[in-house]
C-alpha cells in the first residue's frame, strides 16, 4: 500500500512567529469587537458571549479533522511521510480545540441547563470524537516504526473524521437537550458577524498551531534520518 518515501526535510525558520502574533492580535480584536457590539440576548443574557468562543472552537475542530481526513487519505495513497506528519499535527490541534469545545460547553451548560454535563447526543458524540483523537495521539506515541505508525494512525484518523458528520447532525437526528444549529434566520445579524469574525481569528490561530507542530515533527524526523544515516556511515 505505502512505502516509506524519504520526503521530510527540516524546515528553515520562517516568519511564523510574526503570523502567530498577528493571529493573537486578531483574536483579541474580534473578541473585543463582539463584546462591544453584541447586546445581551433576550433569553441567555450575557451568556451569549460564551458562544463567540464555544462555536468557533467547534467549527475549527471540524476543520482540523477535515485536514486529518484529507492528509491521511493522501498518505495512504502516495506514502509521503510529510502527509502523515501534517495529519498528525492537525489531529493534535483538533484534539485541543475539541477539548476546549467540551469545556466551554460545560461552562455554558451549568447556568443555562443547571448541570455541567448531561449525556445528550451532541455532548456524547463530541466526547467520543475527542476520545478517538486522544487514542490517535496515544497510538502514535506507542508505535515506533514510522510506516506502520502512519498507516495505523491514518486508519484511526479517517474513522475519527467520519464521526464528524454524526456530531454535526446529532442535534437533528436525536432531539435531546442541546439546541439546534443556529442559522441566520434564528439569530440577529450582529451575533452572526461576531461569531464569524471570531471564527476567522480562530482559523488563523489554528493555522499557526498546525504549522508549528508540523515544523517540529519534520525537524525531529529529519534529525532521526540524519542520525540513522550517520550510524550507517552515510555521513562523513
Amino acid at each position: 500500500m505505502t512505502t516509506a518515501a524519504p520526503t521530510v526535510e527540516a524546515p528553515r525558520p520562517a516568519r511564523w512567529p510574526v503570523f502567530g502574533a498577528v493571529s493573537l492580535a486578531a483574536l483579541v480584536a474580534t473578541q473585543v469587537f463582539s463584546f462591544l457590539t453584541s447586546p445581551p440576548d433576550q433569553n441567555m443574557g450575557q451568556l451569549e458571549k460564551i458562544l463567540y468562543v464555544h462555536v468557533p472552537a467547534a467549527w475549527v475542530m471540524f476543520v482540523c479533522f477535515a485536514i486529518v481526513l484529507v492528509y491521511s487519505l493522501r498518505f495512504l495513497w502516495k506514502g509521503r511521510e510529510d502527509d502523515d506528519l501534517l495529519a498528525a499535527a492537525a489531529a493534535e490541534v483538533g484534539a485541543i480545540f475539541n477539548g476546549l469545545t467540551l469545556v466551554l460547553g460545560m461552562i455554558w451548560g451549568k447556568p443555562a441547563w443547571g448541570v455541567w454535563w448531561v449525556w445528550d447526543a451532541r455532548l456524547t458524540s463530541t466526547l467520543v470524537l475527542f476520545l478517538v483523537f486522544v487514542g490517535y495521539l496515544a497510538l502514535r506515541a506507542f508505535v515506533e516504526d514510522p510506516q506502520r505508525r502512519g498507516q495505523w494512525s491514518a486508519a484511526v484518523g479517517i474513522l475519527g473524521a467520519l464521526n464528524v458528520p454524526i456530531v454535526w447532525m446529532s442535534v437533528t437526528w436525536w432531539r435531546t437537550l442541546h439546541q439546534m444549529p443556529s442559522s441566520m434566520r434564528s439569530m440577529a445579524k450582529i451575533y452572526w458577524v461576531g461569531m464569524f469574525a471570531n471564527f476567522g481569528a480562530f482559523l488563523l490561530v489554528m493555522a499557526y498551531f498546525i504549522r508549528r507542530r508540523y515544523d517540529a515533527a519534520c525537524t525531529v524526523r529529519a534529525a532521526e534520518h540524519a542520525s540513522q544515516a550517520a550510524a550507517l556511515g552515510g555521513l562523513d
Partner: peptide, 23 residues
C-alpha cells in the same frame, strides 16, 4: 517543542535546519 527539535537537529547534523540535505 520546535526549539528542542531544532537544537537536536543542529546537534546531529552540525548545521541549521533548512540548510540543504533533504532526507
Amino acid at each position: 517543542a520546535l526549539q528542542r527539535a531544532r537544537a537536536e537537529y543542529r546537534r546531529v547534523t552540525g548545521h541549521e535546519p533548512g540548510e540543504g540535505d533533504a532526507v
